[in-house]
Amino acid sequence: MDMDDRIRDYIFKIWIAFSAITVISVIVYIFGYIFVHGISSVDMEFIFSQPKGMPIGTEGGIFPAIVGSIYLMLIACLFASTLAIATAVYTVFYCDNKRIEGIIHLIVKCMAGIPSIVLGLFGYTLLVLNLRLGRSLLSAGITLGIMIYPYIEVRIEKILREADKDIIDSSYALGVSKFHTLFKLILPLYKRDIISVITLAGGFAMGATAPIILTGAVLFAPVPKSLSSPIMALPFHLYILTGEGISLEKAYGTALVLILILLIINILSIVLTITGKEHN
């Protein structure tokens, strides 16, 4: 190694160290800041009661928003993963035409690039107005589902593409149909990885605000009773509390709860991936 290489190596190491320190400090700072400011308003009452006060949100809790966000995540995941698994299975196992495959990939990539507020507007026009679903849990959930669909599709397609070809061939060689091979062997084998991807995407959906502003999130609503009820959601509640200057303190509390839920979801997803690797 000559002098130049040594210097380059040294500079590269400094660069890595600098990046790592920056990223870690930013994360610690965000978490720390939200924790310090939010912890004082988070207690059992905050988590388990409805918002109260005048204007609403200055007192009371965020229970309907927590439940609303979880419902939104479930609907988004259900909607997106149904379509995403179908797309991924089709492109990997059934599509023989490279051109069609290319078009599908192009569409999925374009979908991933749509700004989330535009998706919100689309959901508002199509679901709320034209399909008359109203501003509701269902409209907002489906809009979020459209947002996370490309994210799930790309990752499931990757999982399926990297699935062991020898195992698939062995199944075909037994005369077992493609359908049975897929649904009884391949998908169950990669079940944990797939669920992990969906969970992660669900976390992403739960944190998104723009798609739900126009499609279903409201300032105040009780815990939703049906798919057609308007809902409260954590990120929207946070946005309103801060944006309207209702209560910064409660906003930090809401942020803390949201971040903790997302943290749990992410950890769950990682655990699933790790145990999935052990299982295989």
Binding site: I167, D169, Y172, L174, G175, H180, L185
Partner: peptide
């Protein structure tokens, strides 16, 4: 493919139990 079975060069057991490896095709 059922009547003309095939075994590959590299052993390719399914990563499931021995029992399920052997009941997989009959169940189909």
């Amino acid at each position: 493919r059922r009547m003309i079975g095939m075994v590959f060069q590299k052993p390719t057991p399914f990563p499931i139990s021995i029992y399920k490896n052997l009941t997989y095709a009959p169940v189909f």
